[in-house]
Amino acid sequence: MGGKRKDFASTTDVQGTEEGGEQKVKKKKKEKLAADGLLPSTIKNKEKRSAVHAKLKHQKRLEKRKRAKARDAAEQRALELGEEPPPRKIPRTIENTRELDETICKPDDEELYAANDADEFSSILKQDRTPKILITTCRFNSTRGPAFISDLLSVIPNAHYFKRGTYDLKKIVEYAENKEFTSVIVVHTNRREPDALLIIALPDGPTAHFKLSKLLLRKDIKNHGNPTSHKPELVLNNFTTRLGHRIGRLIQSLFPQDPNFRGRRVVTFHNQRDFVFFRHHRYIFETKESKQAASSGKKSKDNNDEKSEQKLIARLQECGPRFTLKLISLQHGTFDSKGGEYEWVHKPEMDTSRRRFFL
């Protein structure tokens, strides 16, 4: 552990010195522009300020184009000489400068695979049980709530909708257990808009509470497709930590593990910066012919010199709905608002760093 801390500290020191050097260079450029009277923020006249800003922007664009041309020329020269081209610089993003997390899953983690065989979702993922989902609403329903639920019913196979009425959620969970449902999904609405999802795995939990945002129903998507009744393929992206792995298996347990590829349906849950983006598509493969003129000799009057090449192209059509999920809490067992124990809860003090992710 001590060695790892030293290595991590040394890498952070190097990154800090590099960032400090870049900041010094930028500061010197700003001071020079301010001395020459070319810094837009120092100009009070609005027209002059906008003109100087446009001029600086144009100069930056020209410099960027020159750097790209020089890089392409160096790569071409290296290829002609039979050498390796110079390595391209990797841009710094929030993803590749993510803070080190000890809970990131590794492919050779035997303990993780042993835990997968004994967790609450193993019977469904091993196809010993078929998923059967009960979908209901909160007590105070809205107009967009049923529309969203009808879209969910077309996405999740073997899903059934039951009206909430005045029943407590614990009674609904007991009823679902007796009827051999494997999961309960509760759509919560606020101000006539669905704003949260509660996913309860039966019979032993866990219970995941998600914040729902950026909802776009199928009818609101332009040129949307109508899904068939085939079992969809499921794609889960970037669930890398132990918590993310558990959430991924919870989502996976909602869908059958034997997709019907003839239907060409794909349901995607893409995690990026702890936001889970949901998309639902249909795909198709097409062969497209593209004609290319022959490069040898003169152009003839006839089109005999044109060669036709066939390319395989994949086309996507979004079926909807489209929404984003943000994990709020993960609770042990089924839903219990008073005496329940939580595996993980999101707190405001966790958001101090932009480069810290939990899924």
Score class of each variant (00 low, 15 high):
residue 86 P to T: 07
residue 234 L to K: 02
residue 185 I to W: 02
residue 49 R to S: 06
residue 86 P to W: 05
residue 206 P to C: 03
residue 116 N to F: 15
residue 30 K to F: 12
residue 290 S to T: 13
residue 132 K to T: 05
residue 141 N to W: 03
residue 313 I to Y: 09
residue 167 Y to P: 03
residue 283 Y to G: 05
residue 319 C to S: 10
residue 195 D to W: 03
residue 43 I to H: 04
residue 194 P to L: 00
residue 84 E to S: 12
residue 204 D to Y: 15
residue 130 T to Q: 12
residue 208 A to W: 01
residue 104 I to H: 00
residue 305 D to P: 08
residue 345 V to F: 05
residue 234 L to P: 04
residue 192 R to Y: 14
residue 160 H to A: 08
residue 167 Y to V: 10
residue 97 T to Q: 01
residue 285 F to M: 06
residue 298 K to W: 15
residue 130 T to N: 14
residue 34 A to E: 11
residue 150 S to D: 10
residue 166 T to E: 05
residue 179 K to N: 10
residue 359 L to Q: 00
residue 347 K to M: 08
residue 343 E to I: 06
residue 3 G to A: 07
residue 50 S to C: 09
residue 106 K to P: 02
residue 169 L to E: 08
residue 326 K to I: 04
residue 350 M to C: 01
residue 353 S to G: 02
residue 313 I to M: 10
residue 164 R to N: 06
residue 21 G to H: 11
residue 144 R to Y: 13
residue 252 Q to I: 03
residue 354 R to L: 08
residue 63 E to N: 14
residue 104 I to M: 00
residue 91 P to S: 10
residue 317 Q to H: 09
residue 288 K to L: 06
residue 262 R to E: 12
residue 245 H to E: 05
residue 282 R to H: 12
residue 9 A to E: 01
residue 55 K to G: 08
residue 114 A to Q: 15
residue 43 I to L: 07
residue 22 E to C: 09
residue 260 N to I: 09
residue 321 P to Q: 08
residue 277 F to G: 14
residue 27 K to A: 12
residue 20 G to N: 10
residue 80 E to T: 14
residue 4 K to C: 02
residue 310 Q to L: 14
residue 226 N to L: 10
residue 130 T to L: 15
residue 14 V to D: 06
residue 258 D to K: 13
residue 310 Q to M: 13
residue 285 F to S: 09
residue 28 K to A: 15
residue 330 L to F: 01
residue 237 N to S: 14
residue 346 H to I: 12
residue 60 K to C: 10
residue 229 S to T: 11
residue 79 L to I: 07
residue 89 K to N: 09
residue 341 E to I: 04
residue 208 A to H: 01
residue 342 Y to R: 04
residue 119 D to A: 03
residue 322 R to Y: 07
residue 84 E to W: 09
residue 69 K to D: 12
residue 62 L to E: 10
residue 343 E to A: 04
residue 145 G to V: 05
residue 240 T to E: 02
residue 134 L to H: 03
residue 68 A to S: 13
residue 289 E to K: 15
residue 256 P to R: 06
residue 51 A to K: 11
residue 250 L to S: 03
residue 157 P to A: 01
residue 68 A to Q: 12
residue 317 Q to C: 09
residue 206 P to T: 01
residue 60 K to F: 04
residue 49 R to A: 13
residue 217 L to C: 05
residue 207 T to Q: 09
residue 136 T to F: 03
residue 341 E to Y: 05
residue 98 R to N: 00
residue 355 R to I: 00
residue 24 K to A: 13
residue 95 E to H: 08
residue 134 L to C: 05
residue 114 A to T: 14
residue 202 L to N: 07
residue 330 L to Q: 00
residue 217 L to D: 02
residue 177 E to D: 09
residue 229 S to A: 11
residue 45 N to E: 15
residue 158 N to D: 09
residue 194 P to H: 01
residue 257 Q to S: 05
residue 167 Y to G: 10
residue 67 R to I: 08
residue 331 Q to A: 02
residue 60 K to Q: 13
residue 182 T to S: 03
residue 124 I to H: 06
residue 297 G to F: 11
residue 230 H to D: 14
residue 4 K to A: 04
residue 172 I to P: 07
residue 169 L to V: 11
residue 126 K to E: 14
residue 173 V to S: 04
